[in-house]
């Protein structure tokens, strides 16, 4: 096997490809003929922002020349704007994000709400989720941690979300409404790790407003609100006014998730009686 690391600061030179191929024991005209293929593959990977560029299998014809029988390339999303000309050539539409699956209505709606308002960032996914507890959670790491905490304690999340970057009231409201409108969702858990940029009071307004606009009682619908941090005193006043159970940083993310799970389970037991 031949293996080599390339500099990203300069165009991958031919000699590096030659060295790598020579490590496999190839020599003679095979070496000189295979070298440009590997060198061009390396340049292609760099020039077109690929995260993977693979030729497999590579075949040698009777005349000694090499041809690629199949190839696999992956371009990263962050580079799509500057690779637009190539994507246009390939007929990849700007709206086609090439997800590994078809986005759901929930995912499309959340995306539309996010792009309509530049304040803050929200994301929503429900592929692979089919539970009854709606999650209005954030931010990146907090969402991962909280989704685990709900599942580990027997809860069944209906979805995954991320709130970040201090969204507007209407954006938080829009996200909560989408989660609440999912089939089978009766309650939502509104939770984040300690926030420093996103404001507690703004998210509180958003999720309460979502309940009110859907004619639901916020105190009944929001199983738990656990977002400590910026403007929490103001946020807690709002939550108190609407009878929503909330907690500060003294209640861990795990405990808050557990309370939400317990509430939804109690309700099911009561409902089945």
């Amino acid at each position: 096997m031949g293996r080599g690391h390339l500099s990203n600061l300069v165009e991958p030179p031919d000699f590096r490809a030659k060295e790598v191929i020579s490590h496999t024991g190839l020599t003679g005209s095979e070496l000189t003929r295979a070298t440009p293929i590997l060198a061009r593959l390396a340049r292609l990977m760099r020039d077109y922002d690929m995260t993977l560029a693979e030729i497999n299998p590579l075949a040698r014809l009777a005349d000694g020349s090499f041809v690629a029988l199949d190839a696999h390339m992956e371009m990263e999303n962050e580079a799509r704007p500057r690779q637009r000309p190539l994507l246009d050539d390939l007929g990849v539409d700007p709206t086609d994000m090439r997800e590994p699956y078809e986005p759901s209505a929930f995912e499309r709606n959340v995306k539309a709400i996010d792009s309509a308002d530049h304040r803050g960032v929200i994301q929503g996914k429900d592929h692979g989720f089919s539970g009854n507890l709606g999650l209005v959670i954030g931010a990146g790491g907090g969402s991962l941690t909280l989704t685990d905490a709900v599942r580990s304690q027997g809860g069944r999340p209906a979805n995954y979300t991320e709130i970040g970057g201090n969204p507007s009231v209407s954006k938080a409201c829009g996200l909560a409404k989408e989660v609440l409108s999912k089939d089978g969702v009766e309650k939502i858990a509104v939770m984040m790790s300690i926030v420093s940029n996103t404001r507690v009071d703004i998210v509180a307004r958003g999720v309460i407003k979502a309940c009110l606009e859907l004619d639901k009682d916020p105190g009944e619908t929001i199983a738990i609100f656990r977002i400590p941090g910026a403007w929490e005193e103001e946020g807690f006043k709002i939550l108190e006014r609407y009878g929503v159970e909330y907690c500060d940083r003294s209640v861990s993310m795990w405990e808050a998730a557990g309370r939400a799970v317990a509430k939804i389970q109690e309700e099911q037991v009561a409902g089945s009686r």
Partner: peptide, 23 residues
Amino acid sequence: AFMAGRFMDSEEMKGMSFGHAGT
């Protein structure tokens, strides 16, 4: 260490990124 994103181990989450670009 604390490891978040254990739920991503399930087969249907493969190839989906959550939280951060590298996740």
